[in-house]
Design a protein around this nucleic acid. Structure first.
Lengths: 131, 131
DNA sequence: GTATCTGCAAAGAATTTGCAATCCT
DNA sequence: AGGATTGCAAATTCTTTGCAGATAC
């Protein structure tokens, strides 16, 4: 893989933020520095970065994919405010081992997303699905 | 919600199979009984069945959504053969409790997908991502 | 009878891709 | 130089939607 400033920027944005951006959100951020970057380039780089395990893709029911740093491994997705919250929990390693022992299945990525209602949404308002 | 034979068939297919079909796979199956059903009807019913918690949607990185029975709660997705394997594991309830206790986050659905390499693929062939 | 549901086809959203120009090394 | 990468726009894929007719209750 050859260097490109577009890819470097995209990687930087993901590594320096905590907001689990979608492809389009990343596109909007990169455009501040590289105004004429194209959305296709963002998608191409997100895919190659995922393939090379430099970032990860979160698949979320009824929402677009989000992209994230490699080192966080556990997520809460609030179906009300659509925020994604990071968790780090040693239990995951235990999970991998249990799965390995019981099913001879080698876990490659722990892109786990628990969907539910976060604290703030529970406080502030009633549940609003698919607002 | 009013009865329709289309929706009943779709629900039956999901409840009586273990293959985690995509929307299109369901469409193809229903067409054997209701040849002129439209794909739009399948999508509409899958959405309303999800909203009514009669089925669930699995979001899988780099693959289409799959649909599944409500009562299975844990999945292994093989990135090589693209199969989804069901798991039932009491640990999930424990997980929900831990999340509730630590983050005041109420888990609504456990659509967890562990991605990796299944036993058969590991035996038979080298890993082939995005074949 | 009337609200819900359907098939159809068109629209919409998200993502990929072909191509000529440009950029790294 | 030569292969990788880019911007652009068109194409593809997946999903939703508007509408007129059919169906459930």
């Amino acid at each position: 893989m050859k260097y490109s400033k577009q890819r470097e920027q995209i990687l930087n944005i993901i590594n320096n933020s905590y907001d689990h951006p979608t492809a389009y959100m990343i596109y909007e951020k990169v455009r501040k520095d590289i105004p004429n970057i194209s959305l296709g380039t963002v998608y191409r780089n997100l895919n190659s970065l995922c393939t090379n395990k430099q970032i990860r893709r979160l698949a979320i029911p009824n929402d677009n994919d989000r992209f994230d740093k490699i080192n966080n491994h556990f997520h809460l997705y609030c179906v009300s405010c659509h925020n994604v919250i990071d968790l780090n929990n040693g239990l995951l390693l235990e999970f991998d081992k249990i799965i390995k022992d019981n099913f001879d299945f080698e876990v490659l990525s722990n892109d786990l997303v628990f969907s539910g209602i976060c604290h703030d949404c529970k406080e502030g308002k009633e549940e609003k699905l698919w607002n």
